[in-house]
Amino acid sequence: MDYPRWYWPAFTATGLIWLVVFFVLPFYVVVSVAFGTVDPFFRTPLPVYQPWWWSFTTFTATLQKFGAGGIYFDPLVRTLQYVVAASAICLVIGYAVAYYTARFAGKRKGLILVLLVAPFWISYLMRIYAWQSLLQPDGYINDFLGIFRIAPVEWLAGKPITVILGLVYGYIPFMILPLFGSLDRINQNLLEAGRDLGASPFQTFRRVTLPLSKPAILAGLVIVSLPMFGDYFTNNLLGTTTTSMYGNLLDNAVGQSGQGPELGSLTLILVALVMIPMLYYLRATKRAAERRT
């Protein structure tokens, strides 16, 4: 049977409508707020939808605040440090867990996966609240350290390590699941072939398993790091202003009068920032796909 030319492309319609309604239009509103103005009375944001009326003064001023010496320079550097550290820790721990689950868990595979997903039954906010009470100066963590005669630590007094571990805790399942999916699918015969050809277990891992799981590593890193860039509640609840991240800049601007254009500008700058790892990911996966064919 002969289909009209539009027949197959028409299947993308639902996806396209979804993208337009839930991404393109809201994004245009953000752009219009960023380049817009504020109500002269209440200083609430007044988006400007006509590009010929756009004003870029707030955007440039906001951008300048990220320069060395600007007030947003420190939060930016901090965000990069925390996200890199937290993503790296996620990868190391996540890879080990996924590797064990895929290769050695046997019959308990299902159980481990369920346990990994179990935290999602409780909202992230609630779980961070739980951490907050565990990490109190007189909380269980310090009680436990007391057994080893370690003096109580002020975990919640703006310690970068607390915020980084909070991020790791919150996002690590998103790292484990794609890694597991990939490691689980690796053909056992390939590993056996590696061993047959004289490679040690470590060499087999390095030259067979690791390269085969590289796309999953990249995917996992992208999935965990992108939301970390915009994360504000981890620091709100586990840190202080001295550990402010990019997301906190956004969160603060939301509650202030007259900050609409600045808030929009901050959002656009963040989008540009997270495009960098995203583009790298797309390029890397494209190259990998080309190699396969």
């Binding site: 007030i71 420190d74 202003t241 001295t242 402010s244 906190n248 800049l249 603060n252 601007a253």
Partner: peptide, 10 residues
Amino acid sequence: LDAWNEIQAG
């Protein structure tokens, strides 16, 4: 607000 944002930014 500028002063306050500087405090909030750490």
